[in-house]
Structure formats: C-alpha cells, structure tokens
Design a protein around this nucleic acid. Structure first.
Length: 418
RNA sequence: GUGGGUAUCGGCAAGCGGUUAAGCCAUCGGGUUGUGGCUCCGAUAUGCGUGGGUUCGAAUCCCACUACCCACCCCA
C-alpha cells in the first residue's frame, strides 16, 4: 500500500525521462522562436482565484480541486490549470505597464481530482502559452500556430484542428435562451445526463453521444448563428488569419469549453488514436478573465497542451525519440593497481566532459565487459598490468570490435573524435 | 459520482479442483585469473492481490475488500 503512488499519479522513471526532456526542450525552443518568454508561477494559489477565474459552477471548481486550509487559515488550491495563475501574476506585477502585448509560456503540473482513465490523471502536466494585452485575432491565430507547429514538429500526424466561436456573454446568452426554447418540448426524451445539462450547460447537449439525443438536437440553433456582429467579425478574421498562415482547420460548431472564462475563439487539437480523451491541446480567448479576478480589463488568449497525451500520441504515431547515450566509455580493469589507476583516469576523463563509468560491483573482467555492453558504452578502456607498464590503454570500440593502443594522456582526445 | 474489465516471479504468461506451480524475456553465476553482443549449463514464486468461506483437497469454486485498467461525466 505504502509502495503505491497515490491514485491517478505516475512516476516518470529514469528509463522514460529522456522522452520528457525531448518534448520539453522542443517546447522551449519553439516558444522562444515565437518570441514568448517563460513564466513560473507557484504550485498553489488562493482558492478564490480559481473560483472567480474558472467559474464557480464548473466541474473543475465544484468537484475537482485539491483544496485545503494552510496553518494560517487560508484556503489554498493546487493549480488545476495554468491560465488563471498566469493572469494573476501579470496583474500583480503590473506587467501591463510594460510594452504590450505580453507573450508567455510555461510547463507546469496540474491537479484535478478526477477518476483516472486513459489520458486522464490527477496530477498531469501541461505546456501552455498566453498572449495578454491584445484583442486582435492575429494573436489568436499566432497562438494556434504555435500549437500547430509544435505538434507537427513533434511528428504527430493524425490530429485535427477544430475551431469555433463561443461568442461573448451577450450573444451567448441569446443563444442559450434560443437553445433552451428549442429543447424544452423535447426535454422528457433527453437522456439523464442531458437533462442535467439542460440548466447548467445546454450547449453540451449538442455534443451528446447518445444517438437519440443526436436526433432530437437535429436543427437546433447553433452558437455560430447567434454571434453578434463583433464576434462574427472576429471569427471571420480568425479564419482569414489561419488561412493566410496555411494552417488547416475545420469549424466544429459544437466545441464548448468547460471553463467559464472563454469567449469568442475556442479551439482544440483532437485525435482518435489515444482513447476517449482525444483533446491534446485546447484553448481560446478570455478577455474578461483579468477583470473577473479583480484586475484591469486585459484581453488574453492561450492554450493548454497535455504532455502525457502528447507523449501517448507520439507513441501511437510511431515517433522515435532518440535515447541519449549514458556512457561514452567504460573502464574495465584487472587487478588492484589498475583499478585504482582507473579511478583517477575516470575523474580526468569526466573533467573533459566524457561520460565514463566503472564497475561498482566487483565484477570479474568478463562481467565488466558484459556490463559495458548492457549499458551501451561506446568504448571500453581496458587496463591491466600490461597497460600499466606501457602507459597506454587498450581502447575497444564496442560497436565495431576494433581495438587500438592509446596512451593514457591521449584517451580523451581519441574518444571525443568519434 | 456511475458502469464494465483484470489481478500467478522484475516483464509477458501457462494452469480451468488432486502429488514438487510450465515456458519465454530480464537478472545473477558459470563454460579452466585478460575482452561484451551469439551459444551452452545452472540459479531465481513453500507462492498464485488481501481476508474469509466451500471441500478430504483450491491459483483453480463462492463472498467481501483492495489495487490497477477502460468507459460515462468532464477536460489537457
């Protein structure tokens, strides 16, 4: 029991971390290529930030947050997402007083108390980007472009970009009224889930998986038809920008966001190849969020991208992530003198930046070779009585089997050359 | 929160009520004190998720619990 990680958490073991390093490095590279800077916010925030930011009625806030009181009586919550904390930091540090827009990226753990399943964990990790300070659709398109380029460069193929506009509070309310009006006479026929969605989030009914509900929803008023002039224009601009950048998309009028702060642009990169949780990246615009959490009205747009889901998708797509070599040279020794000398040699070579290892288990000579092979050493340096006398080691290339005598002082150079 | 599935060595896995629980991979040791990957030999579960029960006898049947997986919901 004590030797089990808590439900919904996963260890990333040493033989797997290189994959994480790989995507993290690429993520940093691409964000910086786009002119974004990294931000690091705390692991936890005041609970109220999320209640106000994400929205009191959302599932995330109502039943999924890891919330506790600290010893000072403050209600604290492990962050379930990255946008609200980023906005909070932007406001707190009055970054709006600097040249705008502000473009940031991050790489964070998130915590949500959910029932784990494929692609869904209680502690998961996401990459994110946010652009603050511009209401212009150019920013939305740029955010989407980062996601598109990143995913593409990671070798992911079976992925679709779906976009939608969820309108603004005004047009969304109109649509909601019209939709409920439309659904009212059919209410009794809806599935139980949708009955509960009727009041809370009727837009979700449009996306119900039940074929019965799908039929009932036929001809229902769609958000896109209810957009006000401003929102409609914005959506057109977004599409124009995406087309100009050659980013393929499909309009999915059924995309709904579960976080209250989204307005206008909503988008998702979705796949079918990693199970039911197919959204690898999702985001949108949130012009009212800053004000909602008590700050100035600062427009923003961004996305979150699930690292675990990305890794799953890469695996499903057969993307090969190169495993770095952990040992350039293994020093195999015979006899005590050689072993002690090997210790010194190992230190010298390590100072040269070479990855060197020796036996830690008192293996016999043959065992040392076997071990060198197992850990994938590129070279084995052999030192015994003969070598000690000659002042040169036998350097064996483990791949070709080729062996040469190399003076101790020339070893670093010889190994680095290949 | 609601469903469904699975639990035998580090990994994969046979076993389907009857003497000592297959096998493969991995690991460790060895094949005459100096060279790995191939090959050969040997070692490694008194134990079958946990606790009860049925039975002369259970990994094999029943019950409960627990863990993990998958799906709904929701989302990254």
């Amino acid at each position: 029991m004590l030797t089990n990680a808590p439900k919904g958490t996963k260890d990333i073991m040493p033989d797997q971390v290189y994959k994480w390093h790989y995507v993290e490095k690429k993520w940093k590279e691409i964000c910086e290529r786009y002119g974004f800077k990294e931000i690091r916010t705390p692991m936890f925030e005041h609970t109220e930030l999320f209640q106000r930011g994400i929205g009191d009625t959302t599932d995330v806030v109502q039943k999924e947050m890891y919330t506790f009181n600290d010893h000072g009586g403050r209600s604290i919550t492990l962050k379930p997402e990255g946008t609200s904390p980023a906005v909070r930091a932007f406001l707190e540090h009055k970054t709006y007083a600097e040249v705008q827009p502000t473009k940031i990226y991050y790489d964070i753990p998130c915590f949500r108390y959910e029932k784990p399943q494929s692609g869904r964990l209680r502690q998961f990790h996401q990459f994110g980007v946010e652009t603050f300070g511009t209401p212009n659709m150019v920013a939305d398109a740029e955010i989407i472009a980062i996601g598109y380029d990143f995913l593409t460069e990671m070798g992911v193929t079976d992925l679709t970009l779906e976009i939608n506009s969820v309108g603004c509070p005004v047009c969304r309310a109109n649509h909601r009224t019209a939709l409920k009006e439309f659904l009212k006479p059919k209410y009794d026929q809806l599935c139980d889930t949708c009955k509960s969605r009727y009041e809370k989030n009727p837009m979700r009914i449009l996306d119900c998986k039940s074929p019965i509900d799908q039929a009932l929803v036929e001809g229902a008023p769609m958000m896109l038809d209810y957009l006000c002039d401003e929102c409609k224009e914005a959506f057109e601009e977004l599409k124009e920008n995406l087309e100009a950048m050659n980013i393929p998309y499909v309009v999915n009028p059924k995309i709904v966001r579960g976080l209250d702060y989204y307005i206008k642009t909503a988008f998702e990169f979705v796949t079918n190849s990693i199970g039911a949780q197919g959204t690898v990246c999702g985001g949108g615009r949130y012009d009212n969020l800053a004000e909602e959490v008590g700050g100035l009205p600062i427009p923003g747009v961004g996305f979150g991208l699930g690292k675990e889901r990305l890794l799953m998708l890469m695996e499903a797509n057969g993307v090969e992530i190169p495993e770095p070599r952990i040992c350039d040279a293994f020093i195999a020794t015979m006899g005590k003198d050689a072993k002690l000398f090997g210790q010194k040699l190992m230190r010298d070579l390590r100072k040269e930046g070479i990855k060197v290892q020796m036996d830690d288990l008192q293996r016999n000579f043959k065992g040392q070779f076997k071990y060198a092979d197992r850990i994938g050493a590129a070279y084995t340096i052999v030192i015994g009585d003969n070598e000690m006398q000659m002042g040169a080691a036998n350097l064996k290339n483990m791949e070709t089997g080729e062996q040469v005598e190399v003076k101790f002082e020339d070893l670093a150079k010889a190994i680095k050359e290949k």
